[in-house]
Design a protein around this nucleic acid. Structure first.
Lengths: 122, 122
DNA sequence: CTGCATCCGAATGGATACTG
DNA sequence: CAGTATCCATTCGGATGCAG
């Protein structure tokens, strides 16, 4: 497990990015998905989440740590190394995230069609 | 079906109100729940959602209509009467909302405990 | 490398008052 | 009744630069 995260994991072209779901902060759900396969380092998370500035990412991570969704482990090394991993609580979110993803894939066409129909009639 | 909506349906004291989930706009999920049992009028929705100003509520409703989640039907009467109801697409969101609610009730204690532990150690 | 500090613009959401 | 108009406070997220 724990293959490298792909840069296009959350590509803006991917319609799920504009889906009407949100868990916690704007990026929480994506972080959960990134950590699904094991611990990740800060810089590693920045690969798929390259539209997130470090400030916002660290804010997101800290609030997730506060809520007990992730663990933060800082190795006492130089250069510094920090790993984030899902807690059982955070892992339990995966089913919900998957449910949301299923809904998106199932109903995305409807949603796009609805928006088009709406703008046409306007 | 369609008994009156209770004012305390989304009481701030209810912990699910601060849960880390969001569907669409801030109030979308609550509107979906309000419409679960049938069509509702604008003022009717304002009862449980009394913390939402009319401006924000109408914005929410319009964006939900745009996304094909609800239907808006305006009777040609005076005084005016408008009813909102879930489309099949909007109704399909109910399973997701329920999943989110289940997660909340199942893990709320963990979440509260995590926050307390965090603030204690800080 | 992993973040924190500071500044800033945009967007969100709310209060209040008013209209057809 | 069902909104709209206007104004405003707060928040959010991004850019940049710096520190351990």
């Amino acid at each position: 497990m724990s293959a490298g995260l792909k840069p296009d994991m959350f590509d803006p072209a991917c319609p799920t990015t504009v889906m009407p779901f949100q868990i916690g902060d704007k990026w929480t759900a994506m972080v959960v998905l990134c950590l699904e396969d094991g611990p990740r380092r800060f810089t590693e998370l920045r690969v798929p989440l390259r539209r997130v500035t470090p400030k916002v990412l660290s804010e997101t991570l800290r609030s997730m740590e506060r809520d007990g969704l992730i663990n933060r482990f800082a190795y006492d090394e130089n250069p510094p190394r920090v790993e984030y991993s899902l807690t059982p609580l955070g892992r339990s979110l995966l089913t919900l995230v998957d449910a949301a993803r299923s809904w998106c894939t199932d109903h995305m066409d409807d949603l796009v069609a609805a928006r088009e129909a709406y703008t046409r009639s306007a």
